[in-house]
Design a protein around this nucleic acid. Structure first.
Lengths: 252, 252
DNA sequence: ACCTGAACACCGTTCAAGT
DNA sequence: ACCTGAACACCGTTCAAGT
């Protein structure tokens, strides 16, 4: 499942991603390359979603046969990994300041913008291999830099980076799901029908809230950009929690 | 994209999920039903992953033709929605206490256990419709109950429930991804090859950490159950942040 | 080494037909 | 109303063959 390995024991796809698999190049090349394939696949995913990324479509849009791709990529999974680990999906790196809160917010905003521009990133299966891809490592590196001023152990720094990036990913996911489908609005008939199954006995807390019209389609998910309020709320909690932890000094 | 609507304007799949679409039942029924189909599909997903859930496989394992399913379900997407919104995936509801921290931890543990037992839940596309399914509303209801003692507005309560459940989902996702593939271990050859591209110039913070052997395959991701340390760390942050917010009193 | 073409075993979904 | 069977337009991937 981790794919083929290179002679030295590095996963093939990792070597390719870092450009270390420099294409032996003996016979004639008609112009295909890893970079071209991955770029094209990303373009298709950006425009038409990950579902539109098929081997056939990628190949044809490059002017080649489907089968030509298999000279560069072991299978579709490998192509998806290469797409998700491309480091050019991130905005250019900016100089980091001294205020960790501000750094953290900048880093998080970069992540969020990446997910917004390339929502399919959230659908690609992650794993130990992804962690070694250029894009992922770049994200981790920027995160580590952002919080360098905090008094945390290396273990805690990695934990923090993981926690925050997971948080951003999960909210970007939510945001994407909600954006995908048009909002629902219910007339009196629909509310009546729903009211018969969504009862206060069954759902003592959620039902009254829903029946008052405050749930789906209500103000909760309707502020300007979907779930921004919720997102900020949670991020604030994480940062405040971190500050409290810092103030309390080292533990254990 | 939101699917067909019932006469009163409720999405068809929502009506089915709540059992409000009570099967007209005029002609002869050979024993297929929404419940049987969804249960079978869930069983297959639990055992063999969401990828194994095909219309053909679900139908055949029930002893029917593929096409018979389409009398109960408009398309595959609807089947996936019904699976993800089933409320019997949750552990039985327990009485909630007065300590909101403890309640929150119990609720979160229930969610986590659900994701561990049914990892495919994390792959199903969410949307406005999912929010109205019995399972989702049950989760929200339990969350609202857990934090009822906190002095928060309804808006904030919903935000909090969303934040925490997103957090749990994202970590469960991470956990699943890491569990899917065996861990990587690199010998000296591999480390040498990787060291040529993963340099301190390119990744000033992550590279030294990685080259010291502390990154993938190192102690960070190797503690007992994968990412438990990171998970606890973040949860602690959220709770501490929440407590700090409470102590500071109402805002704005 | 690079790319092609034919073939295989799958998908989801339609439609018309049986009971 | 419920289920079947044949057919269609796709998938990813193999293999043997061409240059």
């Amino acid at each position: 499942m981790a794919g083929e390995m290179t002679d030295s024991g590095v996963p093939r796809v990792v070597a390719i991603a870092w450009g270390a698999h420099a294409a032996p190049q003996r016979g004639p090349s008609r112009g295909l390359s890893h970079e071209k394939i991955v770029k094209q696949a990303i373009e298709i995913a950006d425009e038409h979603g990950l579902g539109a990324v098929t081997m056939q479509r990628v190949a044809e849009s490059l002017g080649f046969t489907t089968m030509s791709l298999y000279r560069y990529v072991a299978n579709k999974e490998e192509l998806l990994l290469l797409m998700s680990g491309a480091d050019w999906l991130l905005p250019p790196r900016r100089k980091s300041g001294d205020d960790w809160r501000e750094n953290l917010r900048t880093w998080v905003a970069e992540l969020q913008s990446m997910y917004r521009q390339h929502p399919w990133l959230l659908e690609v299966q992650r794993g130990p291999v992804s962690v070694l891809l250029p894009g992922t490592m770049e994200v981790v590196d920027r995160g580590m830099e952002a919080v360098r001023a905090l008094e945390l152990s290396e273990q805690e720094i990695i934990s923090l980076v993981l926690v925050i990036s997971s948080y951003v990913a999960s909210f970007s996911n939510l945001e994407r799901d909600l954006a995908d489908q048009e909002d629902l609005e219910f007339g009196p008939d629909a509310m009546a029908e729903l009211g018969e199954v969504i009862t206060a006995e069954r759902l003592p807390y959620a039902a009254p809230f829903f029946l008052a019209g405050n749930y789906a389609g209500g103000p909760v998910l309707e502020d300007e950009s979907g779930v921004d309020t919720e997102y900020e709320f949670g991020l604030e909690l994480l940062i405040e929690g971190l500050a409290a932890r810092q103030a309390a000094g080292p533990r254990d």
